[in-house]
């Protein structure tokens, strides 16, 4: 299979990158149509008040809202970089245009100020989830049925089933308001990250713990582990080197979409902890019919998802060369 046209890994990467623009175009089209179908008007006032008709018309004309096809095509020119090339390199290469609701800002500015926040928070949460999940999973698998196993199982159950607005509020009330250890909300220094990262990590940690536990139980019963033990290797080496390496593979494939999900922010966690990330736009921009902002966040999310899945596939290949790539 391999060797026909270059390294299989390179072929995989190249092929996926070629697919990306096509995927994004389809997603853009679907997003655009759905966003346009939201009833109402992004320029609408609170409580549904309506300025005089002549002013409504002036507003719609200003933002091209009276012409969906024109909007679709013009906007495509901005986000593909065509406008940038056509104008001889003026403005941003990829231009998501102005936010229709927050007219003081362009979507590019919103994304560039908020995406780093979501990425930092998401990566922190995923790292935390890996640490908690691995520890809990290994401990549980080593003594199945023991109180440690039951406890980690319980915590995992709570982590998966309790919604973030419950765990988040609980963390806030205990650690921020009562104990005063962390600020209630906002963003700025390391102390702001702790509580939201914990809240965001819990469901991921719980899932990882379950994956690791199941994988470890299976591995610990397998032939190669029995051989390793028979050889007289210390238990530490058996568990971490021989069992965990294989038990970690399902976690690795889960980490791709999980990291994308964590990095593009959680609507609830960002709301509860007043974190200025992009997660809130997935809901707020839709409610406000902010077409340009919706498109911006959806395309960024899609790109991240595709790229992270690719990274996971590459890591997979590196971790287990037996796996065929196609």
């Amino acid at each position: 299979m391999s060797g026909r046209s270059g390294h299989p890994l390179l072929r995989l990467v190249g092929w996926r990158l070629l697919q990306l623009p096509l995927i994004l175009l389809v997603i853009y089209t679907i997003t655009f149509v759905l966003a346009w179908l939201i009833p109402g008007n992004p320029l609408e006032q609170p409580e549904g008040r309506r300025p005089p008709e002549e002013i409504v018309q002036a507003m719609e004309a200003r933002y091209d809202l009276d012409d969906p096809m024109g909007f679709y095509v013009d906007y495509l020119g901005g986000i593909t970089g065509y406008d940038w090339i056509a104008s001889g390199g003026q403005g941003s290469v990829i231009d998501f245009g102005p936010s229709l609701r927050h007219e003081n800002w362009t979507v590019n500015e919103i994304l560039s100020s908020q995406l780093p926040v979501s990425i930092v928070l998401g990566l922190s949460a995923i790292m935390l989830a890996c640490v908690i999940g691995l520890l809990a999973g290994i401990l549980g698998a080593l003594r199945p049925g023991s109180w440690i196993d039951v406890l980690t199982l319980l915590i995992a159950l709570v982590g998966i089933s309790l919604p973030a607005f419950v765990t988040g509020t609980f963390l806030l009330v205990v650690f921020a308001v009562s104990m005063g250890l962390f600020p209630v909300g906002g963003w700025g220094d390391a102390s702001h990250i702790v509580l939201p990262a914990v809240a965001l990590s819990l469901p991921f940690a719980a899932y990882i713990a379950r994956l690791v536990r199941t994988g470890m139980l299976e591995e610990l019963r397998s032939d190669h582990v029995r051989t390793a033990r028979a050889k007289g290797l210390p238990e530490r080496v058996v568990v971490f080197k021989h069992a965990l390496k294989n038990a970690f593979l399902p976690v690795l494939s889960y980490l791709g979409p999980a990291t994308a999900a964590a990095m593009t922010g959680s609507f609830v966690v960002e709301k509860v902890f007043a974190v200025p990330g992009i997660g809130t736009h997935f809901v707020d921009a839709v409610l406000g019919k902010d077409i340009t902002l919706i498109t911006g966040v959806v395309l960024v999310y899609s790109t991240l998802l595709v790229l992270l899945n690719l990274v996971v596939d590459v890591l997979y290949h590196w971790a287990d060369p037996r796996i065929q790539m196609g």
Binding site: T169, L172, V173, A176, V177, G180, P183, V184, G185, G186, K271, V272, F273, A274, P276, T280, D284
Partner: peptide, 18 residues
């Protein structure tokens, strides 16, 4: 002027003195 979108968090922020 801060932006705290969640009303409950805003009350907690007030309670914490922020």
């Amino acid at each position: 002027k801060l932006t705290i979108e969640d009303p409950n968090t805003a009350v907690l922020a007030f309670e914490s003195g922020a």
